[in-house]
Design a binder for these strands. Structure first.
Lengths: 222, 222
DNA sequence: TCTATCTTGCACACTGATGTGCATGATCCG
DNA sequence: CGGATCATGCACATCAGTGTGCAAGATAGA
């Protein structure tokens, strides 16, 4: 009954919409409480215009989370290494490459208002990690001093922390994420080192040397 | 020139002041953006009264941070184990016992508005950790694939994450914190396990079995 | 070119939070 | 007991942010 409903949207309109999402991504990653006005301005548009594209501040955020989550749920699904250690390492590395998309989710995941939605959206990824942990514990490559659910949660938290509180542009950042996660899984650092050396396709095998600072240090973006 | 300035404060007044600080501690740990009114009410007082004790919302928070920081800078200073691994383990365990005081700082440390003050207040602790890391790397007990400053920061972040996102009341929580930190330092989980078994004075040697949930999971405080 | 679509600025209402002034009443404490 | 101290409620000013209505101007696209 409703063929030819409203006609196709204009080109600049869809571009602006995408621009807003992109701006929201980078802005909210730094400050999850950034105002609608700041987001709009940082996209080169007016606040009023933003409300033309999204009903709500919440609608914008929900779309951000959904698309991001979808993005790396796909990554989680693509992992098929038999070795649980390798699987975990590769997962961390691949997720890292999506840093721009992941950081928002990582930041918003802590926001009381969106915890629920984020948790739902990330359920597939979480299931993958859970299965991975169980497998790793069964074949003796992961630690068994912590219960599987606890370990899975710890790994998630570690990943979230490294992702959201590390300068994505810094040199050994991806490496840092991968190694941190493997450490939490129970590997000694030498073991992790060997693993990564044997599989250079995972990340840059470059050893870290420069500092990886963001906040917490007194002088930042000053 | 100013002897007998104003007389001693009344007893109930100092009690109420302490009550406010205590209430702020537990309230802000859950929600760093809790309103002054919520804090006051949770202390059984009116908002107006709170302003009688503290000039500012900020003044209240600053006092909270300072006293908390002072508290566990003292802990850091008390650590004197020769073995860096032991020192780190004990530091984590002792800090955990101060969970009530630490959680606020951990939560507020992320708050853009107070990062600076928190960083300053925690400088001594941070120095201790830095020295500890250097020592551990020198004697080969900590990982050397990450530069000292990077590793120190990673350890701090890990500790902060575990502390602020874990139910302090749950069973193996302290254990979890200690083991996580040792893992990040580079120890394999078996190594950490042996270490803790050999030094039962550090924490409960109880192995974790129950789940350690707080947020991120869909059903919380529902 | 002509029109539907978009953008923008401005005004407005609303909400939640902060901080202050003041009068009233309760309460410690000498 | 009596005066200083403290708690409280209420009114008020302020501020920042959200979301909407509307009219005027810009622009893509057929």
């Amino acid at each position: 009954m409703n063929v030819m409903t409203t006609r196709a949207p204009r080109r600049d309109a869809v571009e602006n919409r995408a621009g807003i999402l992109s701006a929201a991504r980078s802005t909210l990653a730094l400050d999850p409480h950034a105002s609608v006005d700041v987001i709009a301005r940082s996209a080169g548009l007016s606040r009023r215009t933003l409300y033309g594209h999204f009903d709500d501040r919440d609608a914008l955020i929900r779309e951000l989370i959904s698309s991001g989550a979808q993005r790396f749920n796909a990554i989680a699904a693509s992992i098929d290494d038999a070795d649980a250690r390798l699987a975990l390492a590769r997962l961390a590395a691949l997720l890292w490459q999506e840093a721009a998309h992941v950081q928002v989710a990582a930041a918003l995941a802590l926001d009381e208002a969106h915890v629920e939605h984020t948790a739902d959206a990330l359920a597939p990824l979480r299931r993958t990690v859970a299965a991975l942990v169980r497998r790793g514990q069964d074949d003796g490559s992961f630690r068994t001093d912590l219960a599987a659910p606890t370990l899975a949660r710890l790994i998630e938290e570690m990943a979230r922390t490294v992702i959201s509180r590390t300068d994505a542009a810094s040199s050994g950042a991806a490496n840092l994420a991968v190694r941190a996660v493997l450490s939490i899984a129970g590997l000694s650092w030498r073991e992790a080192d060997e693993l990564l050396a044997a599989h250079p396709d995972i990340g840059t095998s470059t050893l870290d040397t420069s500092d990886t600072d963001t906040d917490t240090d007194t002088e930042s973006r000053a």
